[in-house]
Structures are given as structure tokens and as C-alpha cells.
Nucleic acid binder design. Structure first.
Lengths: 157, 157
DNA sequence: TTGACTATCCTTAGTAA
DNA sequence: TTTACTAAGGATAGTCA
């Protein structure tokens, strides 16, 4: 097997699940066998909460020790909340925008497919003034799209 | 082999050396294969410097992120204004996603209906009243707009 | 101590239910 | 989606130099 990013989503997920379990087991084993203190932290891209070993308290304990090692500059602004927040929100928004676009396109194909296969319409929508509604909605959608484009431009600038 | 502390000093040292190497390799593999962010720290009792992966900078990067996870904040009782803000923005993002999804579904249903009606659109459409659904949709639009503005503000702030 | 070297055991990718 | 299974390859305890 090639040691490279697994592009297939389900395969990657499966591998991750197995390997994270294996990793945590290895951590448990080395600490038990060798009497050392260890911790591990793994962040999945879409998961806010990390996988950790052995526990929040355990990780914390290791981190405190780590931050007191000679090499580590304690005065670094590593826990500057504000700058971290900004960065994180920006990334979140980028992801969100991407997802929104993808979803919209997906829905269009799905709906079209549904029409071609089944050929029916939701009944509660059949009495609406479609011209007015679609106009308003399309306007709103365009505004949102433009905002998104603007945001992307701003980010690039 | 029994999974317990190896009392023999040399044997323990040998095992440690091998297993630490294996552990770091596993970390490298899971990050490469699954595109996740991870770090590992191991302290030997007699060694001041820990074994780390991937590097001081890499560990640092993961720790910054870890220090900002909700659970850790809660554990640290760091209920300051910034973490409150972060939580709020997270909730906002979630709500926005939800609204966008709802909105997309409705919009696509409407679009589909419009599509189906093309060719035999009733001529007296303009006499139909906007009903409750129109109101609901416009409400949702406004909410989405407000969230977008809020997010943009937060982003710039 | 360290660095091979293997036999054994473990992990896990792929597969199927 | 998860769970179970298994062959293949990988990790490593024990050993020797």
C-alpha cells in the first residue's frame, strides 16, 4: 500500500478509525511497558474535538511538563486566543462557503433527477405565485453569491 | 509477552527505543494517509527532553489548537470573554449552515416547480396572493443575511 | 552499550455481510 | 453506515555479535 493521502473519503475514514485506535493502543503500551509519560493528540479536519490519549488531565499534565522543557519558549504567544480565533473563523467560513456551493449544485441535480424519475411536485407549493417567489429568491441568492465572491476577493487581496 | 512494566533496565531501554520509533512512524503514517493534524510527546523519567513528533513547531501548532478546544477550556475554567465569543461564533456558524440548508431545499423545490410549469404557466398568476410560505422564506432570507453580515464583521474584527 | 537478524505476534487494508 | 474476517505486511522481543 502506498503511503500517501487517501483520496477516497470512505476508505480514508475507515483507515483513520483503525489507525487512531492502533495509535492509542501503542501509547498505552509504551507507557505501561517502559514507565514513561506520554500523550497523543489527533485532529481530524472537520472535527472540532481532537482524539486524545490518555485523557484531558493526562494530556494536560504532559503539556505542563513539555512547556517547561528548556527548548520550549514559554513566553511565546502560543495561547493568544484572539489571533487564533481569527484564523480559525476564517478557515471555517471558507469551508462553509465551499460547502454551500457544492450543496446547491448537488440539490439541483437531485431535484432534476427526481423530476425525471418520479415526475411529481410537492403539493404545498403548487398554489404559490411562482413568478414573484422565484424572482425574490433568485435575487437573494444572487446577493449572497456576490457577498461570497466579495469575501473571496477580500481574502485574496 | 506480558503487558506490564519491564523491570529489567536494559530490556526496558531497548523496548523503549524500538517502540518510540514505531510510535513516531505511526504518527507520520496517520497524518499522511488521513490528512489529519497530530502530535505525540513522550517523557522518559530520567530524560529532561521529551521525544516529540513531528517537531517543536508541529507540536506547538497542535497544542495551540488543543488549548482552544471547548473541553479543554472548560476544564481549565477559562471562562473569559474570548472563549465565550468563540462559542458564540461556533453556534452562529452552525445555525447559518442549518438555515442555508433549509433555504436551499425550499429554493430548489420552488425552482423545480417553476421548471415544471414552464410552457403552461397560468396567465392570471399576478392575481394570486403571496401566502405564508413566502413570508417564511423571506424571513429566513433576512436571517441568513444578518448572519452573513455578522460573520463578516467578526471576521474583520 | 549499539546494531543486525528473525520468528512470532500484531496491525490493518481489503472484502463481505 | 458499522462489524467481522483474513491474508499480507509490519512491528518487535529475544538473541547474537
Amino acid at each position: 500500500m502506498k503511503l500517501a493521502f487517501i483520496t477516497n473519503h470512505t476508505a480514508r475514514r475507515a483507515t483513520y478509525k483503525k489507525r487512531v485506535k492502533g495509535l492509542m493502543k501503542k501509547l498505552y503500551e509504551i507507557t505501561t511497558l517502559c514507565g514513561v509519560q506520554a500523550c497523543g493528540i489527533v485532529f481530524k479536519p472537520d472535527d472540532l474535538e481532537p482524539q486524545i490519549w490518555p485523557s484531558i488531565q493526562g494530556v494536560h499534565s504532559v503539556l505542563v511538563r513539555f512547556m517547561h522543557t528548556p527548548d520550549f519558549d514559554r513566553d511565546q504567544k502560543m495561547f493568544n486566543h484572539e489571533s487564533y480565533l481569527k484564523e480559525r473563523i476564517q478557515k471555517l467560513n471558507e469551508k462553509l462557503k465551499k460547502k454551500m456551493k457544492e450543496h446547491r449544485m448537488m440539490w439541483m441535480s437531485l431535484q432534476l433527477h427526481h423530476y425525471l424519475e418520479v415526475g411529481n411536485v410537492p403539493e404545498d407549493l403548487s398554489t404559490l405565485d411562482m413568478n414573484d417567489l422565484t424572482y425574490v429568491i433568485n435575487e437573494k441568492m444572487r446577493e449572497i453569491d456576490m457577498k461570497m465572491v466579495q469575501l473571496e476577493k477580500d481574502e485574496r487581496a
